[in-house]
């Protein structure tokens, strides 16, 4: 169950060279949203656009291919995409909203769908939710420290950042590559990530990430009826090149391992929080458990 419920899992990449030219891996999110926009499945999508500082994402509502393309690629810091979920249905007037997000953002989305306390008229307008794999995230200042102090690259000189094979890598515009062991980055992780019990966006319609597939490809889980329908249509339309996940290395085995590692580690954190302090009688005094 560490991978959540899913109807199918495949290796995939976009067939659009334009998308692949600046996508993080297989261009799944950009391609699927572009297809959904073209087909009227969504009126727009909340994606991580460019913010006020280099490599700072800012949630934007993309209603055109150009706006989607401008948001390609991964930024390893927080883009609070859920902040726009109601606004997308109001100021932007969207009836069918697409949203991409991390596992925790998918959790916020589904909670908003079932308990729309401050989310009037939002639940019925969620048309396509794409989740990404996520081990943890970094506050902007944390990322800045990793890139500028540890990798000695100016934020504005970096053209791509990547996490894989135990390393954090920064590529520069002059072709330079600066890498540090992932271990060095752990202290900069966002604390709130350490209680997260989801690695592969179990609650998305479709979730995707690089882990499990070769460079340039992505692993895709198709989870819900909505996801199944949109994915099938996109594949039929020739948007994606796919391979059975069983035929690629390292495959689901690695995804399962990393998911298990994350969940086991964070479950321990949740448990440790239950007796973080000490009461007068010597027993443990708890920090708040969000899952109770």
């Amino acid at each position: 169950m560490v991978l959540g419920n899913y109807k199918s899992a495949v290796a995939a990449r976009s067939t659009d060279k334009g998308i692949l030219s600046a996508s993080q891996d297989g261009g799944i999110v950009t391609q699927l949203f572009a297809f959904a926009l073209d087909e009227g499945i969504i009126d727009g999508a909340i994606v991580a656009g460019q913010g006020a500082e280099p490599w700072m994402p800012e949630p934007v509502v993309a209603t055109t291919r150009a706006e989607l393309f401008a948001a390609r690629g991964t930024r390893y810091t927080i883009s609070p995409n859920m902040a726009l979920i109601k606004e997308a249905t109001r100021s932007y007037g969207l009836d069918k909203v697409g949203i991409v997000g991390t596992p925790c953002q998918m959790q916020g989305l589904r909670k908003a769908q079932l308990y729309p306390i401050g989310m009037r008229d939002v639940p019925d307008k969620i048309a396509l939710a794409i989740g990404i794999f996520c081990m943890e995230n970094f506050p902007y200042q944390g990322l800045e420290t990793m890139v500028e102090d540890h990798c000695t690259v100016k934020m504005e000189s970096a053209v791509k950042m990547d996490i894989g094979k135990g390393k954090f890598s920064v590529y520069t515009e002059r072709g330079g590559l600066s890498q540090i062991p992932l271990k060095l980055t752990h202290k900069y992780e966002q604390p709130g990530c350490h209680v997260c019990l989801d690695y592969v966006s179990n609650l998305a319609d479709v979730s995707t990430g690089s882990v499990g597939t070769p460079d340039g490809w992505s692993t895709v889980f198709v989870r819900t009826k909505v996801g199944d329908s949109v994915w099938a249509r996109a594949v039929d339309a020739g948007c994606f090149e796919t391979k059975p996940i069983e035929d690629v290395k390292p495959g689901l085995e690695l995804v399962t391992k990393l998911a298990t590692d994350k969940i086991t580690k964070n479950q321990k954190t949740v448990e440790a929080r239950a007796s973080f302090g000490v009461k007068a009688d010597g027993s443990g005094k708890a920090l708040r458990n969000p899952y109770l």
Binding site: P59, T77, I78, P80, N81, M82, A83, L84, I85, K86, E87, G101, T102, C104, Q105, Q107, G108, L109, K111, A112, I117, G118, M119, V122, N137, P139, Y140, Q141, Q190, P191, G192, C193, H194, V195, C196, L287, R288, P290
Partner: peptide, 23 residues
């Protein structure tokens, strides 16, 4: 130590009293 910056709170506020700043 539980906030992960998803932004849901900002969307839910009826008076727009919440903005997301540095996540």
């Amino acid at each position: 130590g539980l906030c992960m910056g998803c932004g849901t709170c900002a969307a839910s506020c009826p008076v727009r009293a919440i903005t997301m700043v540095y996540g």
